[in-house]
Measured scan of single mutants.
Amino acid sequence: MATGGRRGAAAAPLLVAVAALLLGAAGHLYPGEVCPGMDIRNNLTRLHELENCSVIEGHLQILLMFKTRPEDFRDLSFPKLIMITDYLLLFRVYGLESLKDLFPNLTVIRGSRLFFNYALVIFEMVHLKELGLYNLMNITRGSVRIEKNNELCYLATIDWSRILDSVEDNYIVLNKDDNEECGDICPGTAKGKTNCPATVINGQFVERCWTHSHCQKVCPTICKSHGCTAEGLCCHSECLGNCSQPDDPTKCVACRNFYLDGRCVETCPPPYYHFQDWRCVNFSFCQDLHHKCKNSRRQGCHQYVIHNNKCIPECPSGYTMNSSNLLCTPCLGPCPKVCHLLEGEKTIDSVTSAQELRGCTVINGSLIINIRGGNNLAAELEANLGLIEEISGYLKIRRSYALVSLSFFRKLRLIRGETLEIGNYSFYALDNQNLRQLWDWSKHNLTITQGKLFFHYNPKLCLSEIHKMEEVSGTKGRQERNDIALKTNGDQASCENELLKFSYIRTSFDKI
């Protein structure tokens, strides 16, 4: 039985969820670079991206490699990797027998973001014989899940209580170790020597080791999670996991709180800001991140802002960003909400898709409305799209047979046209069989910064309504002859009103 693990408890099935942008060198404390989270699957090609990484700022997932063999891993080693800020997950990587050479110096898994409450997941690794993470000293947050690894031993010899604050939620089941077939031998045991430290858990006094050649490092209890030197002297209180010299914040392997210019500090002093819960960055760093993602459509890219001495992905609820200094300031009234469309555009074809934009005031991208039916549609669209004030790209209304009016965009005031449909149009209306009105132009103002209007096959939309939009939106004169079809717009509506004058002759039985 794995020490510190839980057996036999019912657990939810383990679901495996399925960018080499360097964020800056980590400095003297770390020998390499800070790398983003990685999802490495199918083959070993991307694994080489770990070569210079000291910190993975995010998670590391290595999974679904069915053609790899043990010899493929023999020359692979990433000794610079010290810390993973989120979680480490391995799933069905064939041929991998140990992690001792792959990650010989991995010391800390912070667990800032977890995989279903777990910071370390080893699942269905069919050839893994031992973990071998002999320098792993601290899992700051989260638990361990090690399950269905039929060859995995050296679990009962690990004292997880020396690595985690609590072992109650560890789930370590259905491994070879369960069948008591392992016969784990710690260093020196074969020669009758006791080389590794022994600890007591559940009444068992057991030597602690990761492999037959690597003991588990056990520091004096007084050192807590700070770690200790090879001689057993406690590291500085700002260290986490390990250090090369005692009581020196510049000799830590990793930091308990924050890293700044080669030393570990309790908090980031001005003019620095907390970033990702582990390091200090200056304003320029946060500003660069903001600008890199301002026009990016890459998933996970955030326009970072500053709030409460932190550089964070977005302002919290009730705050909006001051564009001059990136500071989050309290909103006066309802907060603006910028919604970034991942692929640059979004099609609204149902109430469900409209709900995804609920509360958005600025759309960074283009909207395509293609709704053919739905219950209580006008009210639903207004509830979900009615706060949109600005669209950076274009607005396209296409084959939306259920629409009679666009009044559900009740606050839309600006279409920038930074991206144009077919390279020309910022407003595009095609084949809307029941569209009769755009907006009530006596109450609604709309500016279209650039781009043209396109109207074709809107049989109940009168040309007068379209011409009014040209005047109000500032697009009059931009359109070419064929942009607004004269014969297919309003051709099934009563669009022309003329005053009919009647004269009559009164007659009676005795007068003409």
Rank of each mutant, 00 (worst) to 15 (best):
L81G: 00
E180P: 12
S112P: 00
S77E: 08
P330L: 08
L120P: 00
L332F: 15
G37V: 15
P271T: 12
L128P: 01
L260P: 00
E71N: 11
W160G: 01
R162T: 06
I40R: 00
G232C: 13
V121H: 07
L327N: 10
C196M: 03
F285H: 07
R297N: 08
T140N: 10
T320R: 08
H291V: 14
L120F: 00
G318F: 06
N325P: 04
P313W: 14
G262R: 04
D86S: 03
G58W: 00
H291Y: 15
G183C: 12
N105H: 03
N170H: 05
D169W: 06
V265Y: 02
T157D: 12
L114S: 05
V265M: 07
H127K: 03
V108H: 11
R41P: 15
E57I: 07
E33W: 11
I109P: 00
V93I: 03
V126L: 15
P249A: 12
H290M: 12
S237V: 04
E33M: 14
G188E: 04
A254L: 13
P336G: 04
W210Y: 13
Y259P: 01
M321H: 15
T229I: 10
A190K: 06
N117H: 07
N105Q: 09
L152V: 04
R141A: 02
M38K: 11
G203C: 05
D75S: 10
G262C: 02
R162Q: 14
M137D: 02
T85E: 03
P249E: 03
L60W: 00
E238M: 06
P249D: 01
K310M: 05
Q276E: 14
V253E: 10
Y304K: 03
P313Y: 03
L155S: 11
K100S: 14
L152K: 01
L327I: 10
F285E: 01
S225A: 10
R298E: 06
H226L: 11
F73I: 14
E49F: 06
V265S: 05
F66H: 14
P70S: 04
V305L: 05
L88F: 09
L233D: 03
K176L: 03
I122G: 01
R41Y: 00
N202F: 12
G188C: 10
N138P: 01
Y118S: 09
P334M: 15
S284F: 02
Y134D: 13
Y304G: 03
N175G: 11
H274S: 11
L114Q: 10
N135P: 03
T250V: 06
C186W: 02
E97T: 07
E231P: 13
L99W: 01
L289E: 10
P70H: 08
H48I: 07
T85M: 05
D72F: 05
Y87I: 00
G203W: 05
C209D: 03
K80F: 03
P36R: 13
C315W: 03
C243N: 00
V305S: 11
W210V: 05
E314A: 10
C335G: 05
L29G: 14
Q303T: 11
G192L: 13
G58S: 00
N325A: 13
R297L: 06
P70Y: 05
K310L: 08
H302L: 04
L326Y: 11
E130I: 08
S323F: 12
I40S: 00
H48V: 11
L44W: 10
E180G: 06
M321Q: 13
A190D: 13
H28F: 13
P336M: 06
K80V: 04
C264Q: 01
V265G: 03
N202G: 13
C239H: 00
Y118F: 10
Q299H: 13
D288A: 12
S166T: 15
N135M: 15
W160T: 01
C35Y: 00
L233Q: 12
S284P: 02
G32F: 10
S324H: 15
L260R: 00
R41Q: 07
N175P: 13
S284D: 02
Y94A: 08
L99D: 00
Q303C: 15
W160M: 11
A190T: 11
Y30P: 09
N42K: 09
G183R: 07
E49Q: 06
C335S: 06
K148I: 01
W278M: 01
L88M: 11
C53W: 00
G203E: 14
H290F: 14
R279G: 14
F275C: 02
L136T: 03
K193N: 08
L128M: 09
F115K: 06
R145L: 11
V144A: 04
I56D: 00
T199E: 05
V173L: 15
L155C: 13
I139Y: 01
I122R: 00
D178Q: 13
S244R: 12
D277H: 14
G95V: 02
R145D: 03
T250S: 08
L90R: 00
L106Q: 00
G262F: 03
N52R: 08
A190F: 09
A230F: 10
K217Q: 10
K310I: 08
S161I: 05
E147M: 10
R256E: 05
K217F: 14
F103M: 04
R263V: 07
P270C: 04
N117F: 09
C53R: 00
I109E: 00
I163L: 10
H48W: 06
S323E: 14
A190P: 10
V206G: 04
H212Y: 13
L136K: 01
G32T: 10
D248A: 05
F205H: 10
N170L: 08
S324L: 08
L155P: 05
F115R: 05
K100M: 09
P31R: 02
L174A: 13
Y87A: 01
K294P: 05
E33N: 06
H307Q: 06
N105A: 05
Q299P: 12
I139V: 08
S237A: 12
C196E: 14
L327W: 03
G111F: 00
C335F: 05
P334Q: 09
C268I: 01
L174R: 13
R298I: 11
S54A: 05
D39T: 08
V200Y: 13
T250D: 02
F78E: 01
C234Y: 15
C228F: 03
V108R: 05
N257T: 08
D165G: 12
P336Q: 04
L260I: 13
E124L: 02
C280P: 00
N135Y: 02
S166L: 08
I84K: 00
N175H: 15
I122V: 07
P104Q: 01
T157F: 05
S284L: 10
N150S: 10
L90F: 07
P316S: 02
D277I: 04
F285S: 05
M38F: 02
P31A: 03
D261P: 04
S98P: 00
N309T: 09
R41W: 10
H302C: 05
E151A: 13
T199K: 08
P31Y: 13
K148P: 01
